[in-house]
Write a protein that binds this DNA or RNA. Sequence first.
DNA 1: CCGCAAATTGGGAATGTTCCCAATATGGGA
DNA 2: TCCCATATTGGGAACATTCCCAATTTGCGG
Lengths: 337, 337
Amino acid sequence: MKRHQVTIIDIAKELNLSKSTVSRALTGHKSVKPETRQAVLELAEKLDYQRNMLAISLITNKTNTIGIIVPEFKSSYFPTAIIGAQEVASKAGYSTVICQSDESYETEVANTRVMLANQVDGILVSITKETRNYDHLKIFQRKGIPIVFFNRVCDEMEVPKVIVDDYDGAYRAVNYLIESGRKRIAHLAGPSSLKISERRMNGYKAALRKHNVPLDEELLISYDLNIEKVKIYVTHLLNLDNRPDAIFAVNDPTAIETIQVIRKRGLRVPEDIAVVGFSNDFVSGLIDPPLTTVSQPVKEIGRTAAQLLIEQISREVADWKSVTKILKTELIVRKST
Amino acid sequence: MKRHQVTIIDIAKELNLSKSTVSRALTGHKSVKPETRQAVLELAEKLDYQRNMLAISLITNKTNTIGIIVPEFKSSYFPTAIIGAQEVASKAGYSTVICQSDESYETEVANTRVMLANQVDGILVSITKETRNYDHLKIFQRKGIPIVFFNRVCDEMEVPKVIVDDYDGAYRAVNYLIESGRKRIAHLAGPSSLKISERRMNGYKAALRKHNVPLDEELLISYDLNIEKVKIYVTHLLNLDNRPDAIFAVNDPTAIETIQVIRKRGLRVPEDIAVVGFSNDFVSGLIDPPLTTVSQPVKEIGRTAAQLLIEQISREVADWKSVTKILKTELIVRKST
DNA sequence: CCGCAAATTGGGAATGTTCCCAATATGGGA
DNA sequence: TCCCATATTGGGAACATTCCCAATTTGCGG
């Protein structure tokens, strides 16, 4: 399928003008006679003329595009964050290229190549659970292309990051469990490669400590977020001699799956075991029983990240302010506790 | 932020070669001495060289990018379809630009401009519920840029489309309700601007007809998919002298909201009123009660659409085969009926 | 050692646009 | 009517790459 594009030269020829004048008319430059501009604009409209951003970007060295790399689309989390980011970006005249790494390091690397080749002006990244090497992301820094992390951040890079106060959220959730009388609280944590897991785990530990509940290593399980494995771990917890009376899950999908497993075993939530999640996924209020969870301002995270990124892009000099914005969480108590 | 890019000319200078040779080495052309290629490749690697797709696309008149325009990201439907489409696209060497029209006609038009300006090789579209004028989409046809509709299609354009058998799915759902003893079945339909609503409504009517149940216009309500309005309509239905004993909703979010409203009124689902949805959203099996719904092969829809699009792109002549692929649905019976 | 074909490399146009600088046109005051 | 300032327009380089055609080098048989 080869096709011919309408170019400013076509318009110029038709109107006996030079391409320079047409270009000026189209970009709204002042020094062009009103009638001329009018004529150009009309003909452009008539011919369905569309400016070729490829050529423009090639010259201006700016694509007005930001890239977003997220690990998955399964929960409502990333789609929601993306909506927030797009909102801010499009208001600032940027379009977005979205890539989904499918929790695979390989794919993430490939995605960064796509972004680089497409000359994005900056990227927003939330890394995969597998990512341990950050060379593919450091390339952006080296090339002077701004990068902002959100949610799943890379600690060894000095760039802006947007996260929520995971520690505090987890602390409050576990604190609530203890204060409502739960004695043995298990934590189904995320992989240690993610800072997010670590912070939530620390919040969990801190709450136990505050109430002088000794940490029982048996009740602390890290897993790789592969949802199928939840069954194994929860079953294991239920089989303990002294089984837990509450489970704090690292995120909502995990909590939801945990509830399913508990129920299949004939136990009741929350009577036998309370369950708490993290993130307040769209589904969490709808399931049975409605899930108690720590809510995050997800859209706001996307907005903030985009804002930070665009700020960096429009900054003249490369003084990466390595700000870390920490947004607040809120404990939403529902029927699962 | 101005930055300098590493170009093939930098590499050429460093190695005392011409840019032509470097280009050939990089693109894997045969007529270049192995040692030369080796040297070029090594230096490129060392300098973090990335080919500038802008320039390449400008010359080849091909961006290897497909655009995807969807109305929303709130349900899991479109994210899932996008995953399917991306899967096929990236296997074929295409990257994707995703735009979300937020159910706004204006935004959709703006999105098509972005796609055009970015010279996408083709687009996948699911229109907004507001879209009634299709000029912005017909531009693509006129320019010879392939377009494929999925889910929410435009009937007045002769291009490939991917849909599910909505009629049949709705028919089977309503048929099931009748056969399980329901007498008065209401239908909370979508806006008449969407063919999808029409087809589902026709399936509803056909099932009634088959069982000689007269169509009660009072029980047939079209609404604009603005989820907040569900409350008004369902309340209205519940206030009828002869209230329905079943509600067939046009999609899952509507069905879920319907259940909430029914329960707030102190009625039970399914004992008092059965509810059926459409699409088998990720959440549908998790809510209370688990929702009976018509499942669609969503990922497969995305895959098929992308496949069709890429076929069109690689076709030499513009013989738009206006095929309409109709995928099968399946009735998933759960506890809400 | 020469000639010729094959292998390898170089030069320059072309892609569609912006932007700088120069060229031309316009108009008002002397 | 002429001049000069201002308004308007034109010409060409530049962006990074590909690709065609031409130029140069290489190697092998005689």
